[in-house]
Design a protein around this nucleic acid. Structure first.
Lengths: 121, 121
DNA sequence: TCCTTGTTCAACCGTACGGTTGAATAAACC
DNA sequence: GGTTTATTCAACCGTACGGTTGAACAAGGA
């Protein structure tokens, strides 16, 4: 909860392996060993990944013991979605306003459609 | 681009200062100095943050020179939203299936009707 | 009980992150 | 031209990350 969980959630999903784990957990719960199998890293590394995901509240590991399946917690996604949607909506709204302004300005001059940005890398 | 941009985007938004910058950029474009003003870090640090955001395609810095306003690119949000929604939906679907199974199992014992999934897309 | 299986803990390593200071660059103003 | 203003580059520092190996811990099965 609070604001800092967002940081943990985003950070947790910034890793491709962890995103893949999340993707696989949407299908069914799995144990650490099962999860580790496809990757060519050690089980300990995957265990660490799960710790990160757990710390972010993305997964939970209930039944303690020898075999402790990992379970996806879908609610956290709401947190991200809420944040993203909030600012995306704000940004889009701003563009609409800007477009309106530009349209008003251009009704006398020329109609030069705004160029959309594309990311370079 | 492709899948790795997702990592960069998530990583970029894993920092509270950078999220705050994004939030402020939804209101209006701003220069590095303007953006740096509220925080008690150096301008160079903010410049680095912007580099991260730019590398993730979240912002763009067009007009080069003495004054180069930072501009929010809203499209990247789609990337995240798509990823999140995809797996959230999968996870929720799975829960629905599980609920159905549980309901079937309980039809002899108790009848605890669960609410149907409600969410917009 | 001993042994196997599943999982984590502890220590270490290389690299990247977020921050700093100080110098360099680029446009604008006199 | 010289100076101011805005921004970045370069080097450095402490800490956290993702990975490893090796040992420890817990629960079942023989």
């Amino acid at each position: 909860m609070t604001e800092d969980q967002l940081s943990r959630v985003f950070l947790a999903l910034a890793d491709p392996t962890r995103r893949d784990i999340v993707a696989r957990l949407t299908v069914e719960d799995a144990t650490v060993n099962e999860l580790a199998e496809p990757y060519d890293v050690t089980v300990q590394a995957v265990s660490k990944h799960l710790k990160v995901l757990e710390g972010a509240g993305i997964v939970s590991r209930t039944r303690a013991a020898q075999r402790r399946p990992v379970h996806l917690e879908a609610e956290v996604f709401d947190l991200m979605t809420k944040w993203i949607e909030r600012y995306r909506r704000a940004a889009e709204e701003r563009y609409r306003r800007l477009d309106a302004v530009l349209a008003a300005m251009e009704e006398t001059t020329d109609s030069t459609p705004h160029s959309e940005g594309e990311e370079a890398s």
